[in-house]
Design a protein around this nucleic acid. Structure first.
Length: 196
DNA sequence: TGCCAGGCCCTCTTTAGGGCCTT
């Protein structure tokens, strides 16, 4: 495992959600992706609510007659409860303290994930792992307080890695975020300051 | 009818307002 995927004693796992909207109180999860080193997790989940047109424009995800479509191509889906349980199993596989990282995670991904875990009765299994979270948006601002025009993940990846990627596909997002973290190689103090 | 996320952060602020960041 690359050293950058470990912070102190913790395993750093990058995760991202695609959802049906921005309201963390009501949106449905439609994709869960995570990565740590070469270990990858990626599932699509069938939402209970429609996918608004503006979300389809952003994510490429839409509902067809027979299932979930990504840019018009059907993708396999699981029930959200099954997807969440699989995600917990993925996290457990690391068998060490977890530091789960997401961009703007403190404001979006983590509240959405925790609500979904609560609704599906899985929060207790998740909490058994005693995970901590890292917000890479806060980390970027902490590490580079000036000289950055935008702290969006897409802009940070362009700025620090000089590359573009398939933003708003959760799997592509977590891969890019991991590479960004490797580039930053933050020390434990800065990571701790942006963790919760 | 009209509105439609939300909370932190910054500043042309503090008796406020707008931009950012996530989908």
């Amino acid at each position: 495992m690359p050293p950058s995927m470990v912070s102190g004693d913790s395993q750093v796992v990058f995760f991202d959600l695609e959802t049906t909207g921005l309201d963390t109180n009501v949106c449905d999860i439609i994709q869960i992706s995570a990565i740590s080193g070469d270990s990858v997790f990626d599932v699509y989940t069938f939402p209970c609510s429609p996918i608004p047109y503006n979300v389809t424009q952003i994510t490429g995800l839409s509902l067809g007659n027979s299932g979930l479509l990504h840019h018009g191509n059907q993708v396999p889906t699981v029930l959200i409860g099954t997807g969440l349980a699989s995600f917990i199993s993925f996290l457990r596989s690391f068998q060490r303290p977890l530091l789960i990282a997401a961009h703007n995670g403190s404001r979006f991904d983590v509240p959405v994930l925790e609500r979904a875990l609560q609704v599906h009765g899985l929060m207790c299994y998740f909490q058994q792992m005693k995970p901590r979270f890292l917000d890479t948006l806060l980390l970027g601002k902490q590490l580079f307080p000036t000289g950055i025009s935008s702290y969006s993940q897409e802009n940070l990846v362009q700025h620090f890695l000089g590359t573009s990627y398939d933003a708003h596909n959760a799997l592509a997002d977590v891969k890019a975020l991991q590479e960004l973290y490797r580039k930053w190689d933050p020390d434990r103090e800065n990571v701790s300051l942006c963790s919760f």
